[in-house]
């Protein structure tokens, strides 16, 4: 298990909103530029994430947040720049090969498999894994975080409510036992109370599973409560960065994203 050592090290993940834990660099983007045809969606994005951090990327619609995630996992390969994951350049590598390396994305809009049951959805998350015992343990763990999914185990994924689907999507991502989890808009279209519990879970996963998390969000308020650090994106470039606490008290951020 390559991730055993990771679980063992660096226990001091700070409380949410606190200082970022010091650690080695998991992911580093430098000068990433991604195009859709002739349109430049990412105009040289650079940021980094350290081990066991929760990082939020905030921004308005069309700022390039999702493109940023897609560029990391290779769904929209960047035209230039470097994407370094655990020391090696992964730019242009296929999405599925990155899953093998422990980099798992939970795509925007949940994208669960509607005609597969909840249990089958979860098993799909563990597609690349062969360790039956490990899969079972993770399944138990996940169903203890989201007990509702255990109750829905035999149901088709498409029959779940939006919040349950988002829980399933995150759980499915966790079934791959990621070292780094990329979450794309987990709050999309959900009721505030559901969002709350999902964000609590994100923090819990980060603490208990020692998973590094990159979170893309429009809900800046909540994201900043969970994240250690955050980057703010506007039209394809990172315009502001800092710890969550700094950004929360920043006047311009307050004005633009936190409603005053």
């Amino acid at each position: 298990m390559p991730d055993e050592d990771i679980r063992a090290e660096g226990a001091g993940a700070g409380a949410a909103g606190g200082d970022a834990p010091a650690g080695d660099r998991v992911l580093e983007l430098s000068g990433v530029r991604t195009f859709y045809g002739n349109i430049e969606a990412l105009k040289g994005v650079s940021f980094h994430i350290d081990r066991q951090e929760i990082i939020a990327i905030l921004g308005a619609n069309g700022a390039g947040k999702t493109t940023c995630l897609n560029s990391i996992v290779g769904l929209t390969p960047p035209r230039s720049g470097r994407v370094v994951y655990e020391g090696s350049d992964i730019r242009g590598r296929s999405t599925d090969s990155l899953v093998k390396a422990g980099l798992v994305m939970v795509p925007e809009g949940r994208r669960i498999f509607p005609a597969l049951t909840v249990m089958e959805n979860l098993r799909m998350g563990a597609y690349l894994r062969r360790d039956r015992q490990g899969i079972r343990d993770d399944l138990d763990y996940i169903l203890s975080i989201f007990p509702i999914l255990a109750a829905r185990a035999g149901q088709d994924g498409g029959t779940l409510s939006g919040g349950e689907q988002q829980m399933l999507a995150i759980s499915r991502g966790l079934m791959g036992r990621p070292r780094m989890l990329l979450l794309d808009e987990p709050s999309l279209g959900l009721a505030p109370i559901v969002i709350r519990s999902i964000f609590d879970t994100i923090r819990k996963i980060n603490l208990e599973q020692k998973t590094t998390i990159l979170l893309v969000e429009q809900n800046a308020n909540l994201a900043l409560q969970v994240a250690h650090r955050a980057y703010i994106m506007t039209t394809g470039i990172i315009t502001l960065s800092g710890t969550a606490r700094e950004l929360m008290s920043d006047e311009s951020v307050k004005k633009a994203y936190l409603g005053g």
């Binding site: 996992v73 769904l75 296929s94 999405t95 599925d96 090969s97 899953v99 093998k100 798992v104 994305m105 939970v106 795509p107 994208r111 669960i112 498999f113 509607p114 005609a115 597969l116 799909m124 998350g125 597609y127 690349l128 499915r172 991502g173 791959g176």
Partner: peptide, 12 residues
């Protein structure tokens, strides 16, 4: 059902 989600699961 969903090719993108499949890739995110590590399916080639």
């Amino acid at each position: 059902e969903d090719e993108v989600a499949c890739q995110a699961m590590g399916i080639n």
